[in-house]
């Protein structure tokens, strides 16, 4: 028997809400990776200042110039507080939620942002890793939608296996979305 056309009314209140999803926090390894990155940056700044002091000391050894460069150590101190402190507050704010038809990503310390990307709008998915990511067995997943001049959605610091599974799942969902022109 031929099925009748149906157009049931959907109450707006009854729509699935992205506010009530169970957010998946980022892997604890992401915090360690970010802190390691901060440690490397801090070491480079410290080494630079130490080198500068040594060079100036050598250059001015015969000169009777009273130059005190001790204040320069305030730079690594300030940088240290910023780069070490930032992951501690930033990473706990990051979370994602995989739903049947879209993926949600939450981030931001001062500016809280929740972005939703429907699978049927994803053009392609890119998985990338840096040497530091690989050291911590993490990967970044970038979801490309059309007209991405404003920036696409990137989920940083997913465990490699999760990133791969997520990529396969999203591609599968993208492939099953059949639309008519």
């Amino acid at each position: 028997m031929r099925r009748m056309f149906e157009n049931a009314e959907i109450p707006v209140e009854g729509l699935p809400s992205a506010e009530t999803v169970a957010w998946q926090p980022m892997d604890p390894k992401l915090m360690r990776r970010r802190l390691a990155e901060a440690g490397i940056a801090l070491s480079i700044v410290t080494a630079g200042i130490a080198g500068l002091q040594v060079l100036l000391g050598i250059a001015l050894v015969d000169e009777n110039v009273p130059i005190n460069l001790g204040f320069l150590w305030l730079v690594p101190l300030a940088v240290g507080i910023a780069v070490v402190g930032w992951p501690l507050v930033c990473v706990p704010k990051m979370a994602y939620a995989v739903r049947e038809r879209d993926i949600l990503y939450r981030s931001g310390v001062f500016w809280h942002t929740v972005t939703a990307v429907p699978y049927n709008r994803i053009q392609h998915v890119e998985k990338s890793t840096t040497p530091l990511d690989r050291r911590f067995q993490l990967a970044n997943l970038k979801l490309f939608t059309a007209g991405g001049a404003g920036g696409d959605l990137t989920i940083r610091g997913l465990p490699v296996r999760t990133a791969e599974k997520l990529r396969a799942y999203i591609l599968d969902r993208t492939g099953t979305a059949v639309e008519q022109a």
Binding site: V12, R121, Q180
Partner: peptide, 20 residues
């Protein structure tokens, strides 16, 4: 804002017309 967001997602995800 959340109501609009949820409604837009519903429209995007439930429709079968292409966006392009």
């Amino acid at each position: 804002a959340t109501e609009i967001r949820d409604y837009v997602l519903y429209r995007v995800e439930s429709g079968n017309l292409a966006w392009h």
